[in-house]
Simulated assay, not measured.
Amino acid sequence: MTRTKAVIIGSGNIGTDLMMKMIKYQQNMELVAVVGIDPESDGLKQARERGIATTHEGIEGLQKLECYPELGIAFDATSAYAHKLHDQVLRAAGIQVVDLTPAAIGPFTVPTVNMTANLDAPNVNMVTCGGQATIPMVAAVRRVASRLPYAEIIASVASRSAGPGTRANIDEFTRTTANAIEKVGGAEQGKAIIILNPAEPPMIMRDTIFTLSEGADEDAIRASVEEMVAAVQKYVPGYRLKQEIQFERYGDNNKLTIPGRGEFTGMKTMIMLEVEGAGDYLPSYSGNLDIMTAAAKATGELLAERRMAAAAS
């Protein structure tokens, strides 16, 4: 069966790492073009060396490429601002979009949580690196609890692995991640914090997730979290628990007061993760970027499989 032709827009670190994954681990997609705006970027250089079509003229240059009419999927690894125009152009051409920016035009998508719900969407959004790492844990707690009044995530990444695109999107990162914690993770209220750690040597990505839940015991939460970790590891092998899950129970005799939300009784859970990158292009400490590209590829593979099945029927 003919594989779905795909393009990567953005030849920076994220786009280039995604390119390497698509070349090394081919499944349902064929990468036929890489788009950038800097003709000297390493991403475009790497693509040219592998015989992949390239342009440094952005979305306009993509439209001029011979392969453009054959494209089925486009990965956008640029910026939230640029993605708005890209989405309009690509949708008009019938090209399904996987958005790696915080633009959040399409539905939030986390492969292990809600991928099957968005297979027909013209644009799917990969939330953020912090969202891809932590939302599966929030969802793991939510699926065994009767309520999840609150979830908070803290994503700590190496300063070296946060390029200009990441830094320019910090505000969008916190808003988008918090929103997705609620919409995808199932929390009634979500909060996200990102820390750029300048430590040398660079540390790998570490995430802390706090949840306040009702109606679930420790064993159920622990089992659900471990099952979810195993699911994420299928496309991000370096995703793992840093230590044992911590629990604290609040009862009628020691209620937790939440500013603006009143008193809480139930279970407080703390989950600590680390994400080590696969080293396909970026250093292994760049787990924050690796989980985005790995999740985007996993999403693209499912979209391509769906498109090929529809074409065959």
Rank of each mutant, 00 (worst) to 15 (best):
N28F: 03
E172N: 15
T166W: 07
G15H: 00
A231G: 06
A82W: 01
A304Q: 04
T208V: 11
Q46P: 09
E274R: 11
L282T: 02
A223D: 14
D252I: 10
E276V: 14
K64Q: 15
T55F: 11
T112M: 09
K297P: 03
N13H: 13
H86P: 08
D76P: 00
G186R: 08
M137D: 01
R48F: 06
V110C: 14
N197P: 14
F108C: 09
T174C: 12
I59W: 06
S213M: 05
D17I: 02
E49R: 15
Q26R: 14
A304W: 01
P237Y: 03
V127N: 09
V89I: 07
S161T: 11
D219Q: 14
E226I: 07
V32A: 15
M205W: 08
N114E: 15
E70V: 08
F264I: 00
G300W: 14
A139H: 12
A310F: 10
C129E: 07
P39D: 06
K255P: 01
K183C: 03
I209K: 08
I271C: 04
Y281K: 04
Q96W: 01
F173N: 01
I170S: 15
K234L: 12
N169L: 15
G277W: 10
Q246G: 05
S284G: 10
R143T: 04
K21Y: 02
T174R: 13
G287E: 13
L241G: 15
Y239P: 00
T208C: 07
T265W: 03
G163F: 11
D207E: 11
R175K: 10
L85M: 12
Q88D: 10
Q96V: 02
K21G: 01
G36D: 05
I271F: 02
D290N: 09
R307G: 05
L212S: 05
G266C: 01
T176K: 13
S161N: 09
G94M: 07
G185I: 03
A92K: 12
K21N: 06
V35D: 06
A139P: 10
D17R: 03
A145T: 02
A53V: 03
R240H: 07
I258N: 02
